[in-house]
C-alpha cells in the first residue's frame, strides 16, 4: 500500500534521512524503531508532505505523494497522529474527532466513523464536551489517535503513541492499535523503545542516524546484536 524508496531528506543542509526504504502492506502493522533523533519523526513527516525529500519516492496505492500538499495527502487517506499529540485545545474532544469527518468523505457515514473512534477509546467518551486542554498526556495521545482514525484513513501514521504514557495503560493502547489493523487500516508506527513494539507487528525497521539498519521480523531484531546495542540500551 505504501512504498518508500531511497528517501533522502536534508534539513538546513544537514542530512537527516539517507536512502530510507520501507513498505507497509494492507492491514499490516509496521514498526519503525530508533532512538531520539534517529530520523523516525522526519520519515513520518516527509510521508505527510511537511518536508520535501531531495531524492527518493513515496508511493501510496500507486500514486506518488512527493510534491503533494499535506491536506491532499490526508484527503487521499493517510491519517497522522504526531509525537506531541497536537490536539486542538480550543475545541472540545468531540469537535476534535468530528473535524476529520468534515474534510474527507468516505464510504462510511460520519456518524459511523465517529462511533468507531469512540468505540476504540471508550474512556474518551466521558470527556466528549471537555476542552482539549483539560486532558492528561495519555488522554491526549488517545484523542490524537482517535482523531486520525476518524479521518477513516487507509494508512495511519502514529508517531510514538506510547511515549510518556504510564505503563498501566500501555497494554490497552497496544490492543487498540491492533484493533485498528483488524478494522482494515494499515499502520506505520514509530517507536523508540523496542520493548514497546506490539506483539502482532508484521515487520520491523530499525533506523539509526537516518539509515535503515535492520528490516525484518521483530523476533529477529530482538536477537540482532547491533540492533540491541543501539536501541536496546544493553550494557556490554
Amino acid at each position: 500500500m505504501l512504498a518508500v524508496q531511497a528517501l533522502t531528506v536534508d534539513i538546513r543542509a544537514s542530512r537527516i534521512l539517507d536512502d530510507v526504504r520501507l513498505e507497509v502492506g494492507e492491514r499490516e502493522l509496521v514498526c519503525l524503531v530508533g532512538r531520539n533523533g534517529a530520523g523516525k519523526t522526519t520519515t513520518l513527516r516527509t510521508i505527510m508532505g511537511y518536508l520535501r525529500p531531495v531524492a527518493g519516492s513515496i508511493t501510496f496505492r500507486g500514486r506518488s505523494l512527493v510534491g503533494l500538499r499535506t491536506h491532499e495527502i490526508a484527503a487521499l487517506g493517510v491519517g497522522f497522529s504526531p509525537e506531541e499529540s497536537e490536539i486542538f485545545g480550543d475545541l472540545t474532544v468531540a469537535e476534535n474527532i468530528e473535524i476529520a469527518t468534515w474534510t474527507r468523505t468516505t464510504a462510511r457515514s460520519a456518524a459511523e466513523r465517529v462511533e468507531r473512534a469512540w468505540a476504540l477509546f471508550p474512556e474518551l467518551r466521558a470527556y466528549a464536551a471537555r476542552g482539549g486542554t483539560q486532558l492528561s498526556g495519555g488522554e491526549r495521545k488517545m484523542l490524537s489517535v482517535a482523531r486520525a482514525l476518524a479521518l477513516d484513513p487507509e494508512l495511519l501514521l502514529l508517531d510514538e503513541p506510547f511515549e510518556g504514557l504510564s505503563p498501566a495503560i500501555l497494554p490497552a493502547l497496544s490492543q487498540s492499535i491492533a484493533a485498528i489493523t483488524r478494522l482494515g487500516h494499515g499502520v506505520l508506527l514509530a517507536e523508540s523503545n523496542i520493548h514497546h513494539v506490539p506483539e502482532h507487528t508484521s515487520r520491523l525497521y530499525v533506523i539509526e542516524r537516518g539509515e535503515i539498519i535492520f528490516a525484518g521480523k521483530p523476533q529477529d531484531a530482538q536477537r540482532d546484536a547491533t540492533v540491541l546495542r543501539i536501541i536496546g540500551g544493553t550494557v556490554s
Binding site: A75, E86, G89, A100, T103, R147, A148
Partner: peptide, 11 residues
C-alpha cells in the same frame, strides 16, 4: 491553533 496539524486532518 495549529495550522500544520489542521493540514494533516485534510484542511
Amino acid at each position: 491553533e495549529n495550522p500544520r496539524m489542521a493540514e494533516a486532518l485534510g484542511i
